[in-house]
Design a protein around this nucleic acid. Structure first.
Lengths: 149, 149
DNA sequence: TATGAAGTGGGAAAAAGTGGGAAACCCCAG
DNA sequence: CTGGGGTTTCCCACTTTTTCCCACTTCATA
């Protein structure tokens, strides 16, 4: 399981080293796509297959309008990029994805269960603050729900 | 069962020794996560599996399609950390969790049934005072609830 | 007062992260 | 075809961080 948060540099050649803890689980090839909320998603090939399978079919969770689904999929698939992890654990982030996520010289790499997310570290900091506040509210909700069971 | 309260130092290298009494029950690897009320939770791997299964995304679903779920997962997994207990019973607390719980040079380690909690010791002291005062009131409330069942 | 267990601190070795140069490759102009 | 300029890829080297190990201190107990 991918968990934890790391701040790493992105050098002039657009290389970013993956945290050592994630390398084993990620394998040699990964897929980078634009994510949601101004970050990038990084999937293992295996996870990517799952994701694309579900997004491609209509039986998945995409219960919105078809036009929206097309747009979403074009975004997700069209801008996806396969990247090879080099011999010392770095990946290349294509320019168009860098721009997408507003990445500069450093970025936050966040493990979220089955995927990684790459954030502009400042934006990530802001987001975290919000998430923290929401967490307590959500916890209350969940606790309530459990009581109901 | 994990019970009792200890004050331990957190050294420059972010190491904190677990109370000897807890070591056996905790095992060699643990998971630290942000808790509620400004403390950190420490789970055994086994407990963590239970917790993450229960609260995390359901398998198969594309949980990242839902904004609330994204926020929750980022908080839950992105701010978690697997730590190995070293040969003399210490763990490492990553900076992002230290900040989150406002930990400085010392912290309180509290056993709470299945998990440990790590607190800024001053905050813990305050909390305890309040809790003591409230204890009697809460007892009444709980008793009432039992009657209702 | 000796003995052992628990907690704390610090130095050295190993690993991780970062940067940069040289070789290989590609594309285009001459 | 051929040569030059620019990219990309591969590899090496430096720096910082982390990990591992050992030693000291304190406190409780015999």
């Amino acid at each position: 399981m991918l968990i934890g948060e790391y701040i790493h540099t992105i050098d002039e050649k657009n290389r970013m080293s993956l945290p050592a803890k994630f390398r084993k689980e990620l394998g040699k090839k990964i897929i980078i796509t634009p994510g949601l909320d101004q970050c990038l998603f990084v999937f293992t090939l295996k996870e990517w297959e799952k994701v694309s399978e579900r997004l491609g079919s209509n039986e998945g969770d995409l219960s919105f309008l078809k036009s929206d689904q097309r747009t979403f999929n074009r975004n997700m698939f069209g801008q996806a990029s396969e990247a090879e992890v080099d011999s010392i654990g770095r990946i290349l982030i294509p320019d168009f994805l860098k721009e997408r996520a507003k990445l500069k010289n450093t970025g936050a790499i966040v493990g979220v269960q089955d995927r990684l997310e790459i954030w502009n570290d400042k934006i990530w900091l802001e987001y975290k603050k919000k998430a923290e506040k929401q967490a307590e509210v959500l916890a209350e909700k969940l606790a309530k729900k459990e009581d109901d069971d």
